[in-house]
Nucleic acid binder design. Structure first.
Length: 348
DNA sequence: GCTGCATGCGCAG
DNA sequence: TGCGCCTGCAGCT
């Protein structure tokens, strides 16, 4: 359920809830026996790069994070991995951060009827690959594509194959420049390029579909056909969208004026887990997207039926009437002024 | 209770 | 390009 914004929220949760603490690590499932190597270590810090999460462990807290003794646990959630947090009130600042839902386990040992839940007695579900338990709470990992211990070189090797991350410092002009240059140098379709983590790190299928719609861009246009202005605009929009996602835990790409356009239509109720805050006034899922998972439904703007198609093993969603831009920037600049609405919306 | 899908990715061929 | 990984759950029966 991770696109980049979720992983950044996870890193923040680890930083606030477990960083600086000595922790116990284990692999209840048994498929990550290396957990024993860092059991009793101190969690120095957590970092997100694209969809990759790095947790740095050391024997003691005074170790420099670049020291050779530091063990980097690399986690990639893949399609169905997840972290579950439980702990003392305020642990990992979960509510404020939002992303990881506090979910007490299905089973607690030795719990008296009516007693307050105690996270220390939580029995990990059998599929738990890794449990990290600190003095204030714990985190359970299930179903990751990657969970491994790396040294500094191994960590760097992963960073080296990732493009700029719109949620990190490389969102600046240098990052934008890398993105624009890479896109415009390629014959590959823009839809495929946006999913290529070497081009830009952190985008998943939702952000791809929605970003292309907001740009009114044909998903099958080769990257090299795009103007510099169009690419720069997409990057700026992406920064705004993912920033909003990282702050709220929710992907919302619709402008307010477009959310109620077809209120009479019964939306598909199929779940898209957002792991976000449940604050009042949050934009409901069925109003959050323009095209993602809306195939067979009418476009919010022109009512043309939204289409979907497999591309390189993933489903692309788009409006065949709205998304006809091939290189012009006119539509973009007139109708999409830097996605400032995302910030206004969050503040409201 | 069963089936198929999902916000991903690496690898074989 | 297609498959395997490996988990949870919506949507069926």
């Amino acid at each position: 359920m991770p696109e980049g914004h979720t992983v950044h929220r996870l890193a923040a949760a680890f930083t606030s809830g477990l960083a600086g603490d000595r922790v116990r690590t284990s692999s209840p499932q048994g498929r990550f026996p290396e957990a024993a190597e860092i059991d009793g270590f101190v969690l120095l810090g957590a970092e997100a790069v694209g969809k990759h999460l790095f947790l740095a462990f050391a024997p003691s807290e005074d170790v420099d994070i670049d020291a050779p003794v530091v063990r980097h646990v690399h986690v990639h959630l893949g399609l169905y991995g997840s972290w579950t947090f439980a702990g003392d009130p305020g642990f990992a600042d979960v509510h404020a951060i939002g992303a990881p839902r506090v979910r007490f386990g299905e089973r607690e040992e030795g719990l008296d009827a009516g007693a307050a839940p105690d996270w220390r007695r939580l029995v990990p579900r059998p599929t738990t690959r890794l449990r990290i338990a600190g003095p204030r709470g714990l985190a359970d990992l299930t179903g990751p594509t990657a969970c491994e211990i790396l040294d500094a070189a191994g960590r760097q090797a992963i960073l080296d194959r990732l493009g700029p991350d719109p949620l990190r410092a490389d969102r600046d002009l240098a990052g934008r420049r890398r993105f624009v240059t890479a896109v415009r140098a390629s014959r590959t379709t823009i839809a495929a390029l946006l999913m290529n983590q070497r081009i830009v790190a952190g985008i998943g299928n939702i952000y791809r579909a929605e970003l292309l719609f907001r740009a009114r861009l044909d998903p099958f246009v080769p990257g090299r056909d795009l103007t510099e202005g169009m690419c720069e605009g997409m990057w700026e929009d992406l920064v705004a969208l993912m920033d909003y996602g990282a702050r709220t835990g929710r992907i919302v790409t619709t402008q307010p004026a477009h959310r109620d356009i077809e209120a009479r239509i019964v939306e598909r109720s199929r779940g898209t887990r957002q792991n976000g805050d449940e604050d009042e006034g949050v934009v409901p899922r069925e109003k959050s997207f323009y095209v993602y998972h809306r195939q067979t439904l009418p476009c919010r703007l022109c009512r043309t039926t939204v289409r979907s198609q497999q591309l390189a093993g993933r489903t692309v969603f788009w409006c065949p009437r709205c998304q006809t831009a091939r290189s012009r920037r006119a539509v973009w600049t007139r109708e999409h002024p830097a996605a400032a609405w995302a910030y206004d919306d969050a503040a409201a």
